[in-house]
Nucleic acid binder design. Structure first.
Lengths: 132, 132
DNA sequence: CTTGACCTTCGAGTAGCTCGAGGGTCTATC
DNA sequence: GATAGACCCTCGAGCTACTCGAAGGTCAAG
């Protein structure tokens, strides 16, 4: 199977498959006489594995490490656990950050609305100055 | 005042100030005879304004538009309102996405823990295969 | 006159891809 | 056999928002 069909089966873009290969995440596939990449079912499964790890938003270097272990026949369980633990912490941190940011944005929106209600012609942009 | 002190006053990195200038966010400053960038208090205020907008995680092209309006003497109120509205929506979307992701990561962690509790020697990585 | 702190520009690096240019290949149809 | 259209190749650039390092110029103090 060539890269287009592989991409469809693995639900990745062909450009992403080439990129993963160049980044050492996926192994170099065999080539046809014409130089086309040729994949089999096991290659597709590996692509799906990588896609699932990326769907968890694991950084690519973690995906690379985990996929390489799997390719070499070692169980990548501990790296997967560690990566998921790190990722869960990163996600929690980012949610907390975005929650603070959302409060701040909502407060700004309320202030802008109230200023416009009371002084329809006035400029509200000075409220930005109040951000530390 | 030169760029180092300006960076300190505006709480930006000097490299960020140069980058903002090259990106058209901040205007080109006057130069000393030696070619050093020279800033006054109004320049610092503009830097702070840009920093505050970026602290709201507004994309740089929005910051550029808003800062340029302010430089040209126009009130950037409506663009600020629009940008904040867009940003609030983007933040809400991202929080929803990350909340889903956190649930998924926590579910994976629980599954991995339970598998290790019951079959301490087994590999848990097949649980990744269950991700669509 | 030298030292060290500061400044300059330019290019590359970060993350994770996508897209386009310029070219080759394969398959079906005429 | 020719040709059209779909597919593939590599390489380089682009996206975001900066940061860092190299190689070199400037300035004040001792």
């Amino acid at each position: 199977m060539r890269i287009g069909q592989a991409a469809e089966q693995a639900r990745l873009e062909a450009s992403a498959i080439r990129f993963y290969e160049s980044a050492g995440v996926l192994p170099e596939p065999t080539r046809s006489d014409a130089g086309y990449r040729v994949y089999d079912e096991a290659d597709i499964e590996l692509m799906r594995f990588a896609r699932r790890l990326r769907a968890l938003e694991l950084p690519l270097h973690d995906v690379r490490e985990i996929v390489q272990l799997r390719v070499s026949g070692e169980a990548p369980c501990q790296p997967v656990r560690d990566a998921i633990t790190r990722e869960a912490e990163a996600v929690d941190d980012r949610i907390a950050e975005l929650t603070r940011l959302r409060s701040e944005l909502q407060a700004l929106q309320r202030r802008m609305d109230s200023i416009v209600d009371y002084w329809p012609q006035s400029c509200v942009c000075h409220i930005i100055e109040e951000i530390p």
